[in-house]
Simulated scan of single mutants.
Amino acid sequence: MDSETLHAYDTGAAEYADDWETQPAGTDLQDAVRRYFELGRTADVGSGSGRDTAWLVANGFDAIGIEPSAGLRAEAARRHPEVEFHDTALPELDGVAANSFTNVLCETVLMHLEPAAVGPAVRRLVDILKPGGVLYLTWRVSATDQRDDAGRLYAAVDELVVKNALAACDLLVDEQVTSASSGRTIHRIVARKHQQR
């Protein structure tokens, strides 16, 4: 994860969490999860305030949050004490076993990575999925690499790099849409990992 972005989330955790928790419900994300995920062990990678992880748990998923920002993990644990949150970061996801999740959710995280880390990060997200498991992946669309006033990186993610990293998957959804929650333009992919032969 980009260190300046991580620092911004650590120092402004309460404000960012307040913003995310009060945004409109992510009904598009929730609809996709209901359609494509199967009940089972689920990882929310880059779980932020824990809002989506808590929704997953409330809807029957055995879900955990994965969040590298200590500040955001503390906010998430305070706001959603029923949810388990872990400290590790893309692209490595140290300590997370391969083939261990039925579903992986990674909502608007990729653009916070340096471009060279995007391919390895996506391959690692696929790696932690069980064969036949489903990945829900989005990133904010940007024409150029930029930073906001807080220093958060919003890199221009190359969708071909993402798709090449999904070679072990079938694409179920591939679209550019407006997020129901943030109102921002995002690219959404839902992919199913190939069954082992």
Rank of each mutant, 00 (worst) to 15 (best):
M1L: 12
D2P: 05
A8M: 00
Y9T: 05
D10I: 03
T11G: 11
E15K: 12
Y16P: 08
D18L: 09
D18I: 08
T22R: 13
Q23P: 12
Q23H: 15
G26N: 14
G26W: 10
T27D: 14
L39S: 14
V45G: 04
S47I: 06
G48N: 00
G48T: 04
S49C: 05
R51I: 06
D52Y: 03
A54C: 06
V57W: 01
G60S: 06
F61P: 04
D62Q: 11
A63P: 01
A63T: 04
A63V: 01
E67V: 03
S69N: 08
R73S: 00
R73P: 02
A77T: 08
A77Q: 09
R79H: 11
E82D: 09
E82N: 04
E84H: 14
E84L: 14
E84N: 11
E84R: 13
F85V: 02
F85G: 05
H86G: 09
H86R: 15
D87V: 03
A89N: 05
D94W: 12
N99A: 13
N99I: 07
F101P: 02
T102L: 01
T102G: 03
N103D: 07
E107H: 15
A116V: 14
A116I: 13
V118S: 04
G119V: 04
V126I: 10
D127N: 10
I128K: 00
K130I: 05
P131K: 08
G132M: 11
G133H: 08
G133T: 05
G133M: 05
V134I: 12
T138I: 11
R140K: 15
A143K: 13
D145R: 08
R147D: 09
D148P: 13
G151T: 02
A156I: 10
V157L: 03
D158W: 06
V161T: 14
A165K: 02
L166D: 03
A167D: 14
A167R: 09
A168D: 15
L172H: 10
V173S: 11
Q176M: 13
Q176C: 09
S179I: 07
S182M: 11
H187A: 12
H187S: 15
R188I: 04
I189E: 05
V190A: 06
A191Y: 01
R192C: 09
Q195T: 10
